[in-house]
């Protein structure tokens, strides 16, 4: 178990302890909420995790290296931003896919752009959740204000990358 997981458990248990201090009812509701959320998340998760693995098997060898490699520069960052926007599903699909791309030789800056494109443009989330809850006008406002930001994130990563010798470049 990594340090991050341990830290997360500590924070979660502290929060649960704070609920207990507000009375047993809050803690019980928190436990029920967590259980219900797990029941909703787990089926989708168990179906989505293999999808990421299968898609990773299907991506031709060298694709990520050729188009999104560390030397692909601004073009690669732009392509990655767009590809991120089209990437389906929640974090359970996206991050395993990014791991697969990194192992296949994609550049870290391009992957920063990909994750940012997925988080900001994310077609799937926009259509499935934002449109029905907040409406088309909100989406227009948000996308106009933010569509160029994945590119900016990728360029920032290009600048900061020399400070991160722990990230391997293939």
């Amino acid at each position: 178990m990594s340090l991050g997981v341990v830290a997360l458990w500590v924070v979660a248990l502290v929060a649960l302890g704070l609920c207990f201090r507000h009375g047993g009812g809050k803690a019980r509701r928190a436990g029920q909420d967590a259980g219900q959320a797990l029941a909703k998340v787990l089926p989708v998760l168990l179906m989505a995790l293999p999808m990421a693995a299968f898609v990773a098997e299907l991506i031709p060898a060298g694709w990520a290296e050729r188009w999104l490699g560390p030397d692909s520069g601004l073009a690669g960052i732009g392509l990655a931003s767009l590809a991120g926007g089209l990437m389906p599903g929640g974090p359970f699909v996206a991050f395993p896919l990014v791991l697969g791309f990194l192992k296949a030789g994609a550049g870290p800056s391009q992957m920063v752009a990909l994750i940012s494109g997925w988080a900001i443009l994310g077609l799937h989330r926009t259509l499935a959740w934002e449109l029905p809850i907040l409406g088309g006008r909100f989406i227009l406002l948000r996308l106009t204000a933010s569509f160029a930001l994945p590119l900016l994130a990728g360029l920032l990563a290009e600048l900061l990358l020399p400070l991160f010798p722990g990230i391997p470049l293939r």
Binding site: A15, L18, A27, R29, D33, A34, A37
Partner: peptide, 10 residues
């Protein structure tokens, strides 16, 4: 999920 549920209560 546990953290998320506890924060919603707090």
């Amino acid at each position: 999920l546990l953290l998320s549920a506890a924060l919603r209560q707090l």
